[in-house]
Amino acid sequence: MTETRRATLKDVAAASGVSRATVSFVLNETPNQTISTATRERVLRTVRDLGYVPHGIARALREGASRIVVLHIESGIGGNYSRSFIQGLDHELTAHGHVLLVRPGAPTGTAAKQILDAIRPRAVLSFAEICRTGDEPGDDDRPDGLAAHAGLQIRHLASRGHTRIALATPADPLPGDVRLRICGRAAAAAGLPPPVCFPVPRSRSAAVAALAAFRAVFPEVTAIAGHDDETALRTLAAMADLGLSAPADLAVIGFDDTEHGAFATPALTTVQIDGEGHGRRAARAALGLEIDGVPPGRARLIVRDST
C-alpha cells in the first residue's frame, strides 16, 4: 500500500507562487509584514487544498511551545457546564489556530508531566481551579460570574420566604470549593444566616439516612440549594423515600440545568449557566487575548415545581 506524501511548506509556496518565508508569515500571523489580502487568501486557500499541516514538533521548538492547550478534567466533575465549557474552549482555540487536548485526571503526577514535556503546550488549564473562581472581592456584582449564579439560588429561595437554607454538596466535594462561602455572602445580602452544609452520599440508602440525620439536627431548614442538579436530584429521591414532598416539606433548587431535572417528580427548579461563554473567555485568557469581546451570558433561573 502506497503512503500518501505529506504536503510541505515548500509545496504550499510553489503552488501559491510565493516564497516559503511568505507562507510562514501568513500561517504564523507574523506582525509588521506587508502581505496583501489577495496573497494571504491565496496562501490559505492553497493550504486547505493541499491539506498542509504544520509540523507541530518543529514549530514547538521554534516558538518555544506548541499550539496545544491542555485541559485537565478532575474526577467527579461533569454536567452541562463542563460539556458546554469544553465546547466553547475548543471553538475559540480553533478560531485562533490552536488545538484543545482534554485529559482526565489532575494536572500532577508522572503521567501528566510526561505528556506536558512531550507536547510543550501553550497553556495548561485545570477545570477544578476554574470551578473555584468567583470567590474574589467584587465577584458578587458580576452578573455573569459563578458568584452571581450561586447567589441566584439563594435569592430565589429567599424570595419564596425561606429564612434557613442548606447547601447540599457531594459527599466528597473538591478541595477548596468556594460555593459555601459564595452562598454565605448571598444569604447575608438577603439578611439571612449562612447556609449550613448538607453532604449527600451517592448511594440512595445512604442519602436517605443522611437526610434523616440532617433534619433531626437542623429542623429549622426549609430549603436546600444543590451544589449541582445531580446533588439536588439525589436529595429529592431521599425525600421521597422519607415521605417528604417538595416544596411543602423542603424546597429544592439545582444548579447547571441538566436534562434530567425537567423529568424529575417534582420537576427541578435550577440555574442555567453559560459554560460556552466561560470556555471562550478561558481560551482567550490562555492565549493572552482580550476577553471583553466575549461576554458570557447572565445567570438564568429556570423555575419549576420543586420550589
Rank of each mutant, 00 (worst) to 15 (best):
R5L: 14
T8S: 08
D11P: 09
G17M: 09
A21C: 01
F25P: 07
E29C: 09
P31R: 03
T34A: 05
I35D: 14
I35C: 15
T37P: 09
A38F: 11
E41N: 07
E41R: 11
L44I: 11
L44R: 08
T46A: 06
R48F: 14
L50D: 00
G51I: 07
G56N: 13
I57A: 10
I57N: 09
R59D: 04
A60T: 08
L61E: 13
R62L: 02
A65R: 07
V70P: 05
V70I: 10
E74H: 09
S75F: 08
N80C: 07
S82F: 08
S82Y: 09
R83S: 12
S84C: 04
F85S: 02
L89D: 07
L89V: 08
D90F: 05
D90E: 03
A95C: 12
V99S: 03
L101K: 00
V102G: 01
G105W: 13
P107T: 02
I115G: 00
D117A: 15
A118C: 04
A123Q: 14
V124W: 04
S126P: 10
A128Q: 08
C131I: 04
R132K: 14
T133S: 14
G134A: 12
D139M: 07
P143R: 05
G145A: 15
G145R: 08
A150W: 04
I154L: 01
I154V: 03
H156N: 02
L157V: 00
A166M: 15
A166H: 11
A168F: 09
T169Y: 08
T169N: 03
D172F: 07
P173F: 05
L174R: 13
V178T: 06
R181C: 09
A190L: 03
A190T: 01
A190M: 05
L192I: 02
P199E: 14
R202L: 11
A207H: 13
A209Q: 10
A213H: 12
V217Y: 13
F218P: 12
E220C: 07
V221R: 08
T222A: 08
G226T: 09
G226C: 10
A232T: 09
L233G: 02
M239K: 01
A240G: 13
A246N: 05
A248W: 00
L250W: 03
V252T: 07
D256Q: 14
T258A: 12
E259D: 02
H260Y: 13
G261A: 15
A262W: 05
P266C: 12
T270H: 14
G277D: 13
A282T: 04
A282K: 03
L287P: 11
G288Q: 01
L289C: 14
P296R: 02
R298G: 12
R298Q: 11
A299Y: 02
A299M: 02
L301N: 06
S306K: 03
